[in-house]
């Protein structure tokens, strides 16, 4: 009965990974992150296939996962090339800029409540001591001066 436990665990983790990838694909607007979420869904499917392969003690599932790897590599090459081409046209990775690819006569999508962007703190640059003025000496510097 340990085999059933193993199968159920792998199927459950695979389903969770697939769902997380799904919600990421639906919510994110960065094209590269959407692509990443599809890869996550593929990982979930691969994990459940490994579970099935272990359950039946058969190599068929693992063969399928190998070909999933191949197809994922091809998909990465083509998909990232397309993303770079799209980026050249709009100068942004936002998928919302491509709304005109939707079905015709749809109302334009608007954000209901755009979130405020947190302010970035100004960077703190190191400051050099002004030339010509002797920096103040601390006890540490005077104590260890002859040892340097």
């Amino acid at each position: 009965m340990n085999d059933y436990a193993f199968l159920h665990q792998y199927l459950a983790v695979g389903a969770v990974l697939f769902s997380i990838g799904l919600v990421g694909f639906f919510t994110r607007r960065n094209m590269i992150l959407m692509f990443l979420c599809t890869e996550m869904m593929l990982q979930g499917v691969s994990l459940s296939l490994v579970g099935w392969s272990r359950f039946y003690d058969d190599f068929g599932g693992q063969m399928l996962v190998i070909f999933i790897l191949v197809v994922a590599a091809c998909e990465a090459a083509i998909g990232l090339a397309l993303i770079v081409v799209l980026y050249r046209q709009t100068g942004s990775l936002d998928i919302a800029l491509w709304q005109r690819l939707r079905e015709a006569n749809q109302p334009p999508w608007q954000e209901d409540r755009p979130a405020p962007i947190p302010e970035e703190p100004a960077p703190v640059w190191p400051r050099l001591a002004p030339a010509g003025v002797r920096p103040a000496e601390t006890d540490e510097t005077t104590e260890f001066r002859d040892m340097v």
Binding site: F26, S92, P114
Partner: peptide, 12 residues
């Protein structure tokens, strides 16, 4: 590294 569309997402 930070863009508006990473904060504002589709219908959550």
């Amino acid at each position: 590294g930070r863009a508006t569309y990473d904060w504002n997402r589709w219908e959550v």
